Each structure stands twice: as structure tokens, then as C-alpha cells.
Simulated scan of single mutants.
Amino acid sequence: MLILLPPSEGKQPASNGSPFNPDELQFPELNPHRHELLDALAEVSGAEDALAVLGVGKSLVSEVTRNIELHTEPAAAAHTVYTGVLFEALGYERLDAAARARADSSILVISALWGAVGFADRIPAYRLSMSVKLPGIGKLASWWKPKLAPVLQERAGDSLVVDCRSSTYAAAWVPPAANTVSVSVFQLRGGVRKVVSHFAKHTRGELASHLLTRGTAVTTPEELLAAARERWEAELVPGTARKAHQLNIILPEDHAFRAVGN
């Protein structure tokens, strides 16, 4: 099983420690592309129009400034750098040792800067979205797509791919439809299903945690549906030759967040 996650836009910088080592990241064949982006990002982040190019506000000046020296910034495991609703709901720090090992081996975060990183890969905090168009590079999702395809296709093989990415990051790599399930989340409102965003991130994080902790691995879309139904109302929309299967999780009208850790 391979679980694909989007990164959080906000990152938690490491307070100390050594810089990242590109040779220790998963997919070292992507390192030439990573170095190209690191250089391009550093140049953009030092320019007068950095905030406009990167699509961020003045409150994030310090994060943009950090982009200039990422080679020397302290690094930490990706699961501590990425924060936000999805990652809080997944709760890596609350997993037992066996579930953490499964997370390290099965989760890939699709990243605008790194292409793809594993949960245990050491990276610095950075500010760059897949929707950004960098000078000399272009739109990052399009730039990464041909570079990620052969690498991630080999990694996925015939495994079930559980795709929890947002559309922005899903555009950077399209896994094989036959063994891929995208995860959508709806909530009932007045008896009608409505697409949700905040709850969707939280629920995808909970689904990832559930898959890591339940003990029995899922290997098919049907087994994924059965696993989801252990926690939620869910349905599976079969895929086609070109379109992945879709797991729909339907939250009740009175759904509310559970406190983290409960």
C-alpha cells in the first residue's frame, strides 16, 4: 500500500540539528531537479517581488527569507515539519512503533520543492506551493509531472495507491488508475451531500491513521472500502481504464472534530 499526501502549506521549522542531506532522501534520482529548484527558489525569494511570485502575504516574510538558505537550515523528519489539519489528525506522534514503521514505508508526501519525500526523510521548512509559477521553471505541477512519473510508477508497482492529495498536488503525478483510489469527503446537510474542505483534510488524516493502525493491510479497492466502513459511512465508485476508483466518505450532519489525541 502507498498513501499519497499533500504537504501542509505551513511548516514547522526544526529548532536545531544538521542540514538536510540530499543523498539520504528517498528517490535520489530526483536530486538534480531538487537542486535546480532550490537554486531557483533561493533566487526568487531574495528578489523584491518574492511575495507576489510565491503568492504569499507580508506576514510570511520570514518563511520566504528562510528559502534563501535552505542548504544550511536545520532539517527534521518530514512528519514533524509538515503540520496542519491533515497531519494533526494522522497523529504520527501518537502511533505505536509498528504503525510508525508502516507510515515511514508507505507514506509519500508530494512536494513542490522535493518532488516526493518519505515521512522519515529529513527536510528543512520551506515555503513553496505546487501552484506557483517560478521564473525559468514554469508551473511546478507541470514541471514535475514528467520527472515524477517514472520514479513514482516504479515505487508504486502493483501496490494499492490511496490518494489523499488535493487537486493541486494530484496534477504532479497521475498513478495507474487500475490500482489507485482517490479519497473524497462529503457531509450531509439537510439530507444532501455537500463537498467539504476542512473536514476533508481532517478525515483524510484520520483515514491514513486508521489504515496504519488497524493491523491488516489493504491491497485492493474493495478492502479499502471495507476498512473505511469500520469508521465511516462510505462507498466505492469503480474506476475506468483512465480514471481511478473513488472512495467517498460521507460524514453525518452532526459531525464534529474529535479532539486531537482522542
Results as ranks from 00 to 15, higher is better:
Lys147Pro: 05
Gly17Cys: 15
Asp104Phe: 04
Pro13Met: 02
Ser129Glu: 04
His198Tyr: 12
Thr180Ala: 02
Glu43Gly: 08
Asn21Val: 13
Phe87Trp: 13
Ala177Glu: 02
Phe87His: 09
Val109Ala: 06
Trp114Ile: 05
Asp121Cys: 06
Glu235Gly: 15
Glu43Leu: 10
Leu225Ile: 03
Glu88Lys: 15
Gly191Arg: 04
Leu30Gln: 02
Ser8Pro: 03
Val56Met: 04
Ile68Gln: 10
Trp143Val: 00
Asp49Tyr: 05
His33Asp: 12
Ala50Tyr: 01
Ile110Leu: 09
Thr180Met: 03
Leu188Pro: 03
Glu73Val: 11
Ser131Met: 11
Ala52Ile: 07
Gly17Val: 12
Leu211Pro: 03
Thr180Cys: 02
Pro135Arg: 01
Glu48Gly: 07
Leu41Lys: 01
Gln26His: 09
Lys145Leu: 04
Trp232Ser: 09
Ala77Glu: 13
Asp163Gly: 07
Glu88Phe: 13
Ala103Met: 13
Thr220His: 04
Gly190Trp: 02
Leu51His: 03
Ala14Lys: 11
Arg231Gly: 02
Ala226Ile: 07
Gly46Ala: 08
Arg204Gly: 11
Ser15Ala: 15
Pro19Gln: 12
Lys194Trp: 03
Leu224Val: 04
Cys164Tyr: 01
Ala47Asp: 02
Phe257Thr: 09
Gly91Gln: 15
Ala227Ser: 04
Glu36Val: 07
Ser106His: 08
Val195Asp: 13
Glu154Ile: 03
Pro22Met: 11
Asp158Phe: 13
Leu86Met: 14
Arg122Met: 09
Leu207Trp: 00
Arg204Val: 10
Thr72Asp: 12
Leu212Glu: 03
Thr203Cys: 09
Lys145Phe: 08
Ala228Gly: 02
Ser129Ile: 08
Met1His: 06
Asp39Cys: 11
Leu212Ser: 03
Arg165Lys: 05
Gly190Ser: 03
Leu140Phe: 06
His33Ile: 03
Thr180Ile: 08
Val237Met: 12
Asp104His: 08
Val117Phe: 00
Arg127Ile: 00
Trp143Met: 00
Leu134Pro: 12
Val64Gly: 04
Ala234Arg: 05
Arg94Ile: 13
Phe20Leu: 15
Arg204Met: 10
Phe186Asn: 14
Ala112Val: 01
Val81Ile: 14
Gly157Ile: 05
Ala76Gln: 08
Ser167Phe: 00
Ala241Lys: 14
Leu140Gly: 05
Ala76Gly: 12
Tyr126Val: 01
Ser45Glu: 02
Arg193Glu: 15
Ile68Trp: 01
Pro146Leu: 07
Val192His: 10
Asp39Pro: 08
Arg100Glu: 05
Glu24Pro: 09
Ala178Ile: 08
Val162Lys: 00
Asn21Ile: 13
Asn262Thr: 11
Asp49Val: 11
Arg189Gln: 10
Thr168Leu: 11
Ala50Thr: 02
Leu51Asp: 03
Arg100Leu: 07
Asn248Val: 09
Gly55Lys: 01
Ala170Leu: 02
Val81Asp: 06
Phe257Trp: 13
Pro6Glu: 06
Leu224Ser: 06
Gly191Glu: 06
Val218Thr: 00
Leu224Ile: 03
Leu70Thr: 07
Ala40His: 06
Pro22Gly: 12
Asn21Arg: 14
Glu230Asn: 09
Leu236Cys: 06
Lys201Met: 04
Thr240Asp: 15
Arg102Pro: 07
Val56Leu: 03
Glu230Trp: 02
Asn16Ser: 14
Trp143His: 04
Ala227Lys: 04
Asn21Asp: 14
Glu230Tyr: 02
Arg102Tyr: 05
Gly157Ser: 04
